[in-house]
């Protein structure tokens, strides 16, 4: 899996409450989550996420187990999320819903600039420099390749 998108920069310790607030969870309508994603951080951010690669600080996605957080990012059009470290439930959830998450140290972030990634080859490129990503486990790679855990299960049947 490869891609290039414009960078959206986020700080460290972005929690799942700030990604999608509890008040928007009373629905199964994914477009509601996409519309309100990261609203409490910056209400103007959601429309800028289409085709974006998020470059976040450490401990991305900490807090609650709400899967609506990675779903909201994916629905809003985020291509991948890059961070030096992720909270583990968010990391698992993102893979399960088919949102590429890439653990990679030292990636600089300039808003709007292109960021490229290759999960197959394990790198991220930003500002003309290539950074090595930590590989996914074999199982996680398989789930992501299938497009998420639901498809992975359907293929197994």
């Amino acid at each position: 899996m490869e891609g290039t998108g414009h960078a959206v920069c986020l700080g460290p310790d972005i929690d799942t409450d700030i990604i999608i607030a509890g008040r928007y969870l009373r629905t199964k309508d994914r477009s509601v989550w996409a519309e309100h994603v990261l609203e409490d951080l910056d209400p103007a951010l959601a429309p800028r996420l289409r085709g974006a690669v998020i470059v976040a600080g450490r401990n991305m996605g900490c807090g609650s187990s709400r899967e609506q957080a990675p779903v909201a990012l994916k629905e809003a059009g985020v291509l991948a999320v890059i961070a030096p470290s992720f909270a583990r439930i968010f990391f698992r959830n993102a893979i399960n819903v088919g949102l590429p998450v890439i653990e990679c140290d030292g990636v600089p972030c300039t808003a709007g600039e292109p960021v490229a990634f290759s999960l197959d080859e394990g790198w991220v490129k930003a500002g003309g420099v290539r950074y090595n990503a930590r590989p996914l486990s074999v199982r996680m790679q398989e789930i992501l390749d299938a497009g998420g855990l639901v498809n992975y299960w359907r293929a197994k049947e």
Binding site: S64, R66, I89, N93, N96
Partner: peptide, 21 residues
Amino acid sequence: DSHSCTAGAFGAFATGVGATD
């Protein structure tokens, strides 16, 4: 639920996952 780790107080391996897991 993220606080599923609570039951570790009994000497269980207790952990949280998301909905699809």
